[in-house]
């Protein structure tokens, strides 16, 4: 799914030759393993690869494309929070918490984000090439078995990142060999960064949300604009708790 978005700036349609060429090379090598891709011209590049090609992708990128620098690895839970988007209470009433919040299942299509996806969890990683100074965001769907290949054989630095993803999302990395908890206590139950893990402090005492909503101003004085961003947190202090629900 190459980018269909037109650049936001109207003056030129930027064609990012370097990233285009890189994407072509990756697609040529990995073939069907490249499921989807997305380019923000001049800014960034996303590639989604197939689940079973995850480890090989790392190997290819590091050893053949000179993506020597491993930046980070993490995961995204694409499920909408069953507890509602508490912040939007005053703005998006429709998203109010449902009664059976904790039991809700992932119903989304998974077609979220730039490169889409079919599953609830996606592992995302970023590598960087020092020769071309191009960063590459790699995504991969994680199926229902919540298991995926490890990158530690290629990038030893992925060790801790994968352990963190394991404890925070419950995604297992095959052949990692040392999937102890990194941050959490050994006997911790649950996966904190999943969307259905309740943030109890917020549930017990919800934030009243932004009140005093105005429509988006078309034209504003510069001073007013300067004021605006600082106004939103302070708006909370004067808000009425009844607006929370």
């Amino acid at each position: 799914m190459p980018s269909a978005d037109s650049p936001t700036e109207e003056e030129v349609v930027v064609v990012d030759e370097a990233r285009d060429a890189l994407l072509e090379a990756i697609t040529a090598e990995l073939g069907d393993a490249v499921v989807a891709s997305h380019i923000l011209p001049g800014k960034d590049l996303w590639v989604r690869v197939a689940n079973d090609a995850w480890s090989d992708t790392a190997d290819y990128l590091r050893n053949r494309q000179r993506f020597r620098f491993f930046s980070w690895l993490s995961a995204i839970d694409w499920m909408q929070s069953p507890f509602g988007r508490s912040l939007d209470a005053a703005v998006d009433i429709a998203d109010a918490p449902t009664e059976d919040a904790a039991e809700s299942e992932y119903t989304g299509t998974g077609a979220d984000g730039y490169t889409g996806g079919e599953t609830r969890f996606q592992v995302i990683s970023r590598v960087h090439s020092l020769t071309t100074q191009i960063g590459l965001n790699l995504k991969v769907d994680v199926g229902d078995d919540l298991s995926i290949g490890t990158w530690t054989k290629t990038y030893p630095g992925a060790d801790w990142h994968e352990r963190e993803v394991h404890e925070m999302f419950g995604i297992h990395f095959e052949d990692h060999g040392d999937m102890r908890n990194l941050y959490l206590p050994t006997d911790f139950e649950g996966f904190p960064l999943r969307k259905d893990f309740p943030l109890m402090a917020r549930l017990v005492k919800p934030w009243p949300g932004i009140v005093d909503v105005e429509p988006m101003p078309e034209v504003e004085e510069p001073e007013a604009g300067e004021e605006s961003s600082s106004a939103s947190p302070s708006g909370a202090t004067t808000s009425n708790p009844e607006d929370a629900s």
Partner: peptide, 21 residues
């Protein structure tokens, strides 16, 4: 020059993904 560009009073960030380092 100015130190603030025009931003809406309540900041809602459009859908998308971005990584800046």
């Amino acid at each position: 020059g100015p130190i603030m560009t025009k931003v809406p009073r309540i900041i809602k960030v459009p859908e998308g993904e971005a990584y800046i380092e």
